[in-house]
Design a protein around this nucleic acid. Structure first.
Lengths: 386, 386
DNA sequence: GCGGATCTTGACAACGTTGTCACCAGGTCG
DNA sequence: CGACCTGGTGACAACGTTGTCAAGATCCGC
């Protein structure tokens, strides 16, 4: 009995090992593995048995080197753990699967440097294409990649100036405008705006929508009603306290993204016992899924709620409309009215566009805008106190 | 002036092109790119300029082929869009980044076949290691990979029989036991159990914990109080209706995972107007983030709540304890008491174990069990009606 | 001025696959 | 019977890197 070298070798068997085992040439194994026609069925069977016996698996790395396409794409988002992006992520993954592609996923955490590192690492792996939720605004580093033929689609936010790439975003201005108009239609004229950090594209756009709605209703814009920043609990609580202790406090709030909405609700519960579910059982955040980062989202304990001379709990029936839908919005009391965008649609549309490009679709860069829609649930229909 | 071929060529420049441009040998470029010592600084500078000029990036695929390690790992989970798994996913990603590795992510969707496909695709890409939340129970297909030297760590659920791999799970039995004991301590003796599909490991374990708690309190086990299955709205609503119309209905519910808890709350809101936030504004699920799949999670509209002869809305103050914490549990009315496990810790622990193996740690397969803890918030402390 | 050490550089094979081309045996057709 | 095709197979180069080894230049001490 002949024992081949392969059987005793360390590590992965190669096509060569299989060929030796089956007594054929390397190329014949290649043909069998790739199901190319023109192999005698008896030979093929012998090869397949050898493959089975040795536990051979094709090395796709080497294959890629030879053929060019890697059948993989890179996905850079802000944070996989954020429900908005994880929905988007899943949609991209599904489209990729459908196109026979694998997905490298990476979270930038709003850090332009990390975004860049991730993108370049993906490019070094020679992914066929990229889906990017940009953190930074300078994407000059992408230019060489693009001219080298890598396809990229930006989602949720556009690319920095000077980069001509496909983009899929939602109608931030229109969505915010309609959400604020909804509050105005229910009688509100003093409407607070709580937004994400002002450097973020979507935050700026939504503020723009807010102002448009005010203008359309001939309500003057009052900067003191606007607060923007990262949606961590202390900051939001402080901002809300400031808003509610104004001489002429808002009767309604428009919150600029999902995280901010949730943080706002938690702040209001802390500030206003009448709204509070159970004042003695503070939230324990350490193990909560879906938070951005355990260090940025601190608990409600010990937040600096003491503040102005007026009582911040003077607004028990503050109306609220939030941008972004979120799980359980319907089960809160009152249920939360939202301007919903569709992360799954966003991801799917972007990925489909990418694969269309990869299969040869030419033409100038597209900019697709997806609609939003209002889902009234109660919190946005509360009238102002008279 | 000499124009090199590289400048006019299509596609990516290679080290060869850079070498030609800089007037050095291929190997010298390799040294510069990899920051190996022993290159004259003037030469190195010339090479760097050529790299810059051509927009060269190292092809990591070829590099991998030569060196063996791919500096990438594969992550297979149930669904990236599920907040539990997306938290886990983010933790794995962070550890990978910290170890200079990229992550291929894939969702199995509880389909053993897809799990297998994903794992094998990752192996074909020669990932260094795998973190797997198994969907199936037969992992024979992994054996050749393991003997070939691929490291694997199973998370959240153990591997199928006969596979000796590292495993990180949480204390499902103990967690469920303590959650149910908590209800018993508050006076309940008729406690319903709503669990995930009975084929899923964690679901079985938690049912075991439920039974242990009953036994410890000398309460007989009543199978009619147990309902298991995929946590889609119609099924859960039907099950709850059945439980509440029993001759001797439960005064408390223990829900076996996050999705089931949420679905249960939604069902109760539908069934019991006294619990309902606003009966006229049904939830609109189409755009909600974090749902398992838009087809499995249907809205509450049109669910078959009509059923038994008794009134299913007869339990306004049903106590509830849920397995898994979830965002907003603290803001519901009443706030929801949960047995929290820590998906981030789960992911981090698994990934760290994987990288310890990859850096040479030998020894027998470990089985790490992480603790859970109860977070009382109100719903689990409601007494039974007298 | 010579043997040897040091520094810098390059030629070449190898990683595991696929594309190209050529070869051989056997059959078909004119 | 020779030209031609066809089905099956294999030899070989190439993909873009890195590891090994060796060679040439320069410098040291004696």
């Amino acid at each position: 009995m002949i024992r081949t070298v392969a059987e005793t070798r360390r590590g992965r068997p190669t096509m060569n090992d299989v060929a030796a085992e089956a007594g054929v040439a390397l190329k014949t194994v290649s043909r069998v593995v790739n199901e190319e026609p023109g192999v005698n069925s008896a030979t093929a069977e012998r090869v397949r048995r050898a493959i089975e016996h040795l536990g051979y698996r094709r090395n796709d790395g080497a294959r890629v080197l030879r053929r060019g396409r890697t059948a993989s794409i890179g996905l850079v988002i802000e944070d996989v753990a954020d429900p908005f992006y994880s929905g988007l992520s899943r949609a991209v993954e599904d489209v990729a699967l459908h196109n026979g592609s694998l997905v490298f996923t990476g979270s930038s955490g709003e850090d332009p440097l990390r975004e860049r590192e991730l993108v370049l690492a993906f490019c070094a792996r020679r992914v066929d294409g990229l889906v990017i939720v940009p953190a930074g605004s300078d994407h000059g580093y992408l230019a060489p990649e693009l001219t080298a033929g890598i396809q990229a689609v930006f989602v949720d936010r556009p690319a920095g100036a000077g980069l001509n790439v496909d983009t899929v975003i939602c109608d931030n201005v229109g969505g915010a405008r309609s959400g604020v108009a909804h509050l105005i239609a229910h009688g509100h004229r003093r409407i607070g705006f709580l937004g994400d950090d002002a450097t973020i594209f979507t935050a700026k756009e939504r503020l723009r929508g807010y102002r448009q709605a005010l203008t359309a209703a001939s309500i003057p814009y009052d900067p003191s009603l606007v607060a923007m920043g990262t949606p961590d609990q202390p900051r939001v609580t402080a901002d809300i306290t400031r808003l509610l202790t104004l001489d002429d406090p808002p009767t309604a709030l428009f919150t600029g993204n999902g995280q901010t909405t949730v943080t706002t609700l938690r702040a209001l519960t802390t500030l206003d016992p009448r709204r509070a579910t159970k004042a003695t059982t503070p939230r324990d955040t350490n193990t909560t899924p879906g938070t951005r980062d355990s260090s940025t989202t601190s608990g409600t304990r010990g937040t600096n709620t003491a503040g102005g001379t007026r009582d911040a709990s003077a607004a028990p029936n503050l109306a609220i409309v939030g941008f972004d839908d979120f799980e359980l919005a319907d089960l809160l009391t009152p249920a939360i009215t939202v301007v919903a965008q569709d992360p799954i649609n966003l991801g799917r549309t972007a990925a489909e566009l990418l694969f269309r490009r990869l299969t040869g679709s030419a033409g100038p860069a597209e900019r697709i805008q997806l609609p939003t829609r209002i889902i009234p649930r109660g919190s946005g229909e509360l009238p102002p106190p008279r």
